[in-house]
Each structure stands twice: as structure tokens, then as C-alpha cells.
Amino acid sequence: MAGSNPNAKPMNLTLNVWRQPNRDAQGQIVEYKVKDISPDMSFLEMLDVLNEDLLHQGQDPVAFDHDCREGICGSCDLFINGRSHGPEKGTTTCQLHMRKFSDGDTITIEPWRAHAFPVNKDLSVDRSAFDRIIQAGGYVNVNTGGAPDGNEIPIPKDIADRAFEAATCIGCGACVAACKNASAMLFVSAKVSQLALLPQGQVERKTRVENMVAQMDIEGFGACTNIGSCAAECPVGISLENIAMLNREFLAAKATSNNLA
């Protein structure tokens, strides 16, 4: 059945895929061929084709993380031809379509490469370090019940919009994979900025940034050297301004906080 572009020709591709049986095993690149790939397929649908082929041949399919396939859950995490989520700007792997590639291409597919994201198997990595950073303080301390009426906390529209922009981070880890230092600054700064901008986040503003940065260091993420590849590769466009804000927040907290050493 033809898709949106009835003239699009199917493609044959060579895939170089990182295979690694488990966390402790040695990994290696393995070459596969896929045929008759429609340009209207998503990248993951192309991998589905590969995996069905492998299964039919009695070989172990390639493990990879994915779920919503509409660019919002943050599960998918492939490093394609040396770039987080592949060649298209502002796009998660699941929303990348094969029309961005050409017949005869060789595509290299690796997992996120970062000390803090160990490989589970093949292309699937463990990103629980991100969860632990949020657990260190990426929330407002408020119990269910007893919240004031929503309209009792008026928020200027431009502040609300800026907080929203920061809050759209999907936690995929593309920023870490793109960074030569494997730094998690963009991820951390997005949450810190969101809550530092909003009135609800003021009470714990200082302790939050101190605790989250401390956890980030414990997890073994690298330092930020202001290259900006994180923001360039972020599929949802989290801005570098957030890192600037994180640095200001951190400095201000360290200079004035009496909460932590």
C-alpha cells in the first residue's frame, strides 16, 4: 500500500549494529542487511523488520528501548551515525523516518555511550541515574490534599511559558550521549529552571539545586565545558539558557545557603 508519497522507492540498507549480550559482556559491531525499506517507515519500524528477519532465521533480535513511538515517552535512545537520535534536528529516533536516508546507505547504530548509562543489552541502556537525580530534589514538597485553589497562585504568562519550555524535557539522555564529557547538565538544568522560575518552587530553591547537582556528580556524569552539543541534539529543543540558569542558581545557592556544606 502506498503512503503519503506514492512515488517513493523502497531502499536496501546495510546496518552496523552494536551487539552486547549483557552488562558485563564484551560488545561488538555486527553487520546486517535490510531490504525493501519504505521511505515512509519510521526508523524503529525499520528495526522491527530487521528483528522479524533475525527471529525467523533463529537469531537473537536486537534489543532496544521504545514505547510510545510518538516522541514523548523518552524511551527510545539510539546513537545513529554518530548522532543522538540520528540526523534530523529536533526529532526522537521513533519520529525519524527512513526518507531521511538513501538507498544503499550504511547506518551505524549504537547505544548511548556514557559511564553513567551502562548497557543492559545491545542498544538498551540503564538510565536510572536520571531518576536518582530527580529523587534528590526535582520536586515540590507538597502532599496530596490541602493545595490552595489553582488560581490563587497567579503566574505571569511569560514565566509560565518559560517554565513549560524547560518542563518539556523527556528524559531520554540524548544530551548526555551527545556530550564529549557525558555531562547531564542540560537534563538537570531543565528541572532546576522549571521549578526556580515558578512561585511553587521558591521555598526549596536553594536546597534543590545543591542536592540535584551533588547527585549528578555522584552518578559519574562529566563536567560541562560549554560546547553546546547537548542543546543542538536535544529532540525537544531544551535551551542552553537553562544551563546558564543552573549555574547562576548553583552559585547563588552556594554563596548564601546555610543548608549544605
Binding site: 520536586y139 515540590v140 507538597v142 496530596t144 490534599g145 493545595a147 490552595p148 485553589d149 489553582g150 497562585i153 503566574i155 505571569p156 504568562k157 509560565a160 511559558d161 517554565a163 513549560f164 518542563a167 522549571q194 521549578l195 515558578l198 511553587q200 518552587g201
Partner: peptide, 12 residues
């Protein structure tokens, strides 16, 4: 109310 208190950035 609960979500606003948590810092959910609803449209304004």
C-alpha cells in the same frame, strides 16, 4: 489545585 501546587505548568 494539586497539580498546580506540584509545579505543573498549565497554560495561563
Amino acid at each position: 489545585d494539586q497539580c498546580v501546587a506540584q509545579g505543573v505548568p498549565f497554560a495561563r
